[in-house]
């Protein structure tokens, strides 16, 4: 976006720009300015709400939109009942919210709004955001685990069939793998989204710079790069859906650990 002196900075798209409230919006000294990131969170929430409104007609014979909404809830419901079982029913609101929020954020961030001068900000490419979502999911796992099983939840770190002579090592490995979960959850989404956007930005800089360098360069480098960009845009839409799915799936798998301890 920032073509300063013919240079395209692929990281510039991730810059957070405060829109208002920079000066005096603060909680305990921490500035909580309304930024472009917050704006796109709000847009995501509103778009998601509009999408859901189509499912509120509650018709016996659903229209296309209602069918789409119902297939999304049915998808999450099916995922939870497959991974957690009957006890998974009560997590549908949370998993649905997190799946749809991430999915819509990822997809809205891919909108080609740059064409009309608007910068679609993908807030899921910030680990402050994905980190909070991961910590939310991880906290639910911890709370449910200790609520349902008490201190017995620690037996999660001793899988079935652990040989007695490995009891000194396995719980440690399990503990590490358990504690890594929120990081892997947060970093996976953040990295996937950021990498895709950087890749598109780098390819677009190839197109711009090679074309600026002359028609020959433009044909030799710009056109293939542009074709590749189209293909990667399709891939990015797939990644946007897959990353939202992975986040929701892993959260439901972790919840399964907490619900049905071995």
């Amino acid at each position: 976006m920032a073509a300063e002196a013919g240079k395209v900075d692929p990281m510039h798209q991730f810059t957070i720009e405060p829109l208002f409230g920079t000066d005096h919006w603060a909680i305990a000294g921490h500035n909580i300015a309304f930024t472009n990131s917050a704006l796109w969170m709000a847009i995501t929430a509103v778009v998601l709400w509009l999408f859901m409104l189509g499912g509120m007609k509650r018709a016996l014979v659903p229209g296309r939109w209602q069918m789409a909404v119902e297939s999304m809830t049915g998808f999450i419901d099916g995922m939870l009942s497959a991974n957690v079982g009957p006890a998974g029913k009560k997590y549908v609101p949370y998993i649905f919210s997190i799946f749809m929020f991430i999915l819509f954020a990822n997809l809205l961030g891919l909108l080609p709004l740059g064409l009309i001068g608007v910068h679609p900000f993908t807030f899921t490419s910030h680990f402050t955001v994905t980190g909070v979502l991961a910590i939310l999911s991880f906290s639910i796992v911890l709370i449910v685990g200790f609520w349902r099983h008490g201190l017995h939840f620690f037996s999660l770190f001793v899988p079935h069939g652990t040989p007695w002579w490995l009891l000194w090592l396995i719980p440690f490995i399990e503990l590490v793998s358990f504690m890594v979960r929120p990081f892997s959850l947060a970093l996976r989404l953040f990295v996937a989204m950021m990498a895709g956007h950087v890749l598109l930005e780098v390819l677009s800089s190839f197109v711009i710079n090679s074309t600026n360098a002359g028609a020959g360069f433009g044909l030799a480098i710009g056109v293939p790069s542009f074709i590749l960009m189209i293909a990667i845009c399709a891939l990015e839409m797939l990644v946007a859906a897959i990353q939202a799915y992975v986040f929701a799936l892993l959260t439901s798998l972790y919840i399964n650990d907490a619900e049905n301890l071995h």
């Binding site: 930024t35 709000a42 929430a45 709400w49 859901m52 609101p93 909070v132 979502l133």
Partner: peptide, 19 residues
């Protein structure tokens, strides 16, 4: 601080209103 605040606020709204 801004990121965390707005995310919790907006995701909370999504969870309570939509979820």
């Amino acid at each position: 601080a801004s990121q965390i605040f707005w995310l919790l606020l907006i995701f909370g709204a999504v969870f309570f209103v939509i979820g």
